[in-house]
Design a protein around this nucleic acid. Sequence first.
DNA 1: ATTAGCACTCAGGGACACTGAGTGCCAGGG
DNA 2: CCCTGGCACTCAGTGTCCCTGAGTGCTAAT
Lengths: 334, 334
Amino acid sequence: MLDERKLAVLRAVVEDYVSTTEPVGSKSLVDRHGLDVSPATIRNDMAVLEEQGFIAQPHTSAGRVPTDKGYRLFVDRLSSVKPMSAAERRAIETFLAEAYSLDEVVARTVRLLAQLTRQVAVVQYPSLRSSAVRHIELVALAPRRVLLVLITDTGRVEQAAVDLPDDAHPESISHLRAVLNACLDGHKLTDAAKTVVGLADRIPVTERPNAGAVFSVLLDSLAERHEERLVFAGTANLAAPDFANGLRDVLEALEEQVVLMRLLGESAGPSALTVRIGAETGLEGTSVVTAPYGAGGQAIAKLGVLGPTRMDYPGTMGAVRAVARYVGRILGES
Amino acid sequence: MLDERKLAVLRAVVEDYVSTTEPVGSKSLVDRHGLDVSPATIRNDMAVLEEQGFIAQPHTSAGRVPTDKGYRLFVDRLSSVKPMSAAERRAIETFLAEAYSLDEVVARTVRLLAQLTRQVAVVQYPSLRSSAVRHIELVALAPRRVLLVLITDTGRVEQAAVDLPDDAHPESISHLRAVLNACLDGHKLTDAAKTVVGLADRIPVTERPNAGAVFSVLLDSLAERHEERLVFAGTANLAAPDFANGLRDVLEALEEQVVLMRLLGESAGPSALTVRIGAETGLEGTSVVTAPYGAGGQAIAKLGVLGPTRMDYPGTMGAVRAVARYVGRILGES
DNA sequence: ATTAGCACTCAGGGACACTGAGTGCCAGGG
DNA sequence: CCCTGGCACTCAGTGTCCCTGAGTGCTAAT
């Protein structure tokens, strides 16, 4: 149905259109690529490709432009990820290595990704679930309100205010803190749920409601809230002419964390690059390339870039993959 | 030089241009405003205003458009801040009152401001300097690295990693923590500098280098870094046609915290609204309205909005002022 | 299956004229 | 002296017409 040459034509159309932004015609195709056939032949191929929905004409008597379906096929079967050059890899590595705190790693990563791809970069904060507890602090704010501070082994600090059902005496708070630290120190948050079950025994009955409130905040909201934090950079790249009309929608999507989370979240394979094209993203004319990243093999969050459907997929995918790897490595070390 | 009527004409030009986005001519002016003179008279006035540089013509045979200088005069002498309606004030109050943590207050404030003004809103995080210390925590990360966590009386948590000159034993860290808490608890960071001077006495000579490192991070970087944090919202409003060309610059400015800090920082009076117009902002075609806000009378940070030179100044100023007041009130309560 | 040839289409761009909102200026009137 | 009505002038924007050129689809020959 689609022989070798037709696929080559589609590939050429995508490549040319991406680099010129202009509908590509049969003649220029045979010129720019080393196709040993005449324009007329290409025209026939193009007619077939159009019928199948891989390319389209903006108007009669204009060249062809890839459709979403065309880009899809291109990404899935006609192109391969373009690896970063050695120089680029080195630059990435040294740039990220200069970051100390997690905040800084994330900030640098997102800027780097925006710069490499010249598009909008998005990075999700790593989940807390796989970190281990180093220290837990409780500070009284009001009779029925304490501040819960969690310090992880990776040196991250998370806080949350907890509303207590009963008034809490200073000493009962100290006791709770001591128990929490004794039991959870060194444990991962993922395992903390089990640990907490047996933990209630060590707490006087009268204090259990308060302790329960603290536990639930620690396990649920603290660990989860963090996963929702997103950072982005490179929005200035939206000023490119591609987005002329859809601009408003994209900017709104960037502020609506929910939309972005969905874009990052719904990726398919666990260790693979995910590419969502055009309508698949819910944003007309916009594509998204994402990858999971994580320390020591297991994915803890995602990152990616967002750009016009007409983007350099191999290059973008290469950059996303490279950055995801190096971030994972950096996080694994600290 | 500029009699009453000429000023009225300028005011009318600004108002009409702001609402229609189109150069305003003499005829439409006398129609839309109750001016009891003929268009010809207005034309003469306009000629004078143009000569003085308050208005300009995009091209001959087009209406007039205010210049930066014209807007300046309008803001300084021809308009007054438009107070929010009672309903709006109530909405602001309840919306902000629902926020618990400081992060949430800031997040809600910036969104609110963007929505009220339909422009880009920027909020600077409140300075830590005027908060008092509630608790200080030190956690060892590595032999020569500790994590310093500061909890303030307003329930805020700040962290910073400290590199130590010497190896630190667990007990010396505990000791340092105890001393820090004993001496600083309840004191404001602004006063902490004095307190620290006498504090060295309580620390063994061998530990002083390490203690010094912790102190300096606490006083300098921790307190200062925080003031540099900015949050913004409403970037989708940049899609308005006004920004068609300058868009890229504005988006870049938003990512360059430095530029934004300057825009927020250089305001004149301590308690007043500041309006910077067009070239005054360093961004062609962009104006900025800022106000300080703070708990209990003293300003602790700034907030503001950024929009096209052609903006509704009275309304925007009203919104900024109102939001600044209510945020101050909310922060004062907690 | 490929190609050469040919008629056809249509967006983009230049030339042209027309319209209308707006101007500047002047001479006359309160 | 300030205002006004009148008048000639300017020019951005719009619409029409036409031409050009890149690109197409189809058909007949290889």
